[in-house]
Amino acid sequence: MTTTDAGAGEAIPETTPAPAGKGPLVYRQSIFTRLTHWVWAISLFFLLLTGLQIFNAHPALYIGQESGFEYDNSILRIMPELVDGQPRGITTIFGHRFDTSGFLGMSGTEAQPQYRAFPAWMTIPSYQDLATGRIVHFFFGWVLVATLAIWLVSSLLNRHFVRDILPRGQDLRGLPADIGKHARFSFRHGRSYSPLQKLSYFIVLVILFPLIILTGLTMSPGINASAPWMLDLFGGRQTARTLHFIAMVGLVLFFVVHILMVLLAGPINELRSMVTGWYRTSPGTPREKGDR
C-alpha cells in the first residue's frame, strides 16, 4: 500500500509540472481510510434513522437509573398534546415547552396528522415499527464497531492516526488562525489536515464514536450484568440513553459541517480524494516523491 508521509518526504525535481495554477496531485487517503469512510457513511445513515424509530417508541429522555412515571426525571419529551382543544406537537426540553407541530410530536398532513415524535420521513421504516428498527440498528451497530476496529488498527500501522488525527501542540497553537481562515471561507489545500479538521475528526473518531458505542452497550441488560462499571461510568441506564442521544446530535452536527466544508472546499476534488485517494493541492505546494 502506498502512503504519502505528509511533510516528511524529500523534495524532488519537477519532471511533469502541474497544470498552470495548480499544485501537485498528492496521494492523500489510503484504501483503509476511504473504505472505512464510506462504510461509516452508510452505517451512520441507517443507525440515525432507525435510532429515531427506536426513540419514537418511548419519546422521552431521563437522567438516572430508571424512568420516572410517578416523579419527573425527564429532560426531553416529544409528544402530541391537546392545547386549547387542538392537537399540537409539543417538545419539552428541561421544562421549557416548544410548539413543534408539523415536525416533532405531530407531523403528516392536516387531513391525516400523524402523532409521533420524529416524522415518517426521518425514520426507517417510515411507519411505526420498533421491532424492525431494532433489527436494522443492531446490524449496523455491529458494522460500525467492526469498521472502527479495522480503522484503528490500520491507522496506527500506517501512521494516519498519529499524522492526521491526533492533534499536537502546533495544531492547537494554529487553531485561532485556522478558525479565522474558515470564517473567511479561505482554504489552502495542503498535504495534511488543518488544525480544525484534525480536531473535528479526533472528536468524532476518538470521542463520539466510542461514546455512542459504549452508551449503546450500557442500555443492554446483558452487558449491564457483565460490566456494571459502565452503569456507574454513565450514571445509570437512562442517563446512558440520554448520552447516546446527545452523541447522535453531535454526529449530526459534524455531518452538517462536514458536508458544508466539502462543498466550500471544492466538492469534486474532495470527493475524488475520498474515492481514488488522489487530492489536488493548492499552487505552491512543494512536490514530493510519489506526487503527480
Binding site: 417508541a57 437509573q65 430508571e66 420498533l130 441506564r237
Partner: peptide
C-alpha cells in the same frame, strides 16, 4: 432489579 422495556424505559 431494574426492568427494561424494549420501548426504552426502565423501572426499579
Amino acid at each position: 432489579t431494574r426492568h427494561d422495556c424494549v420501548e426504552g424505559w426502565s423501572c426499579i
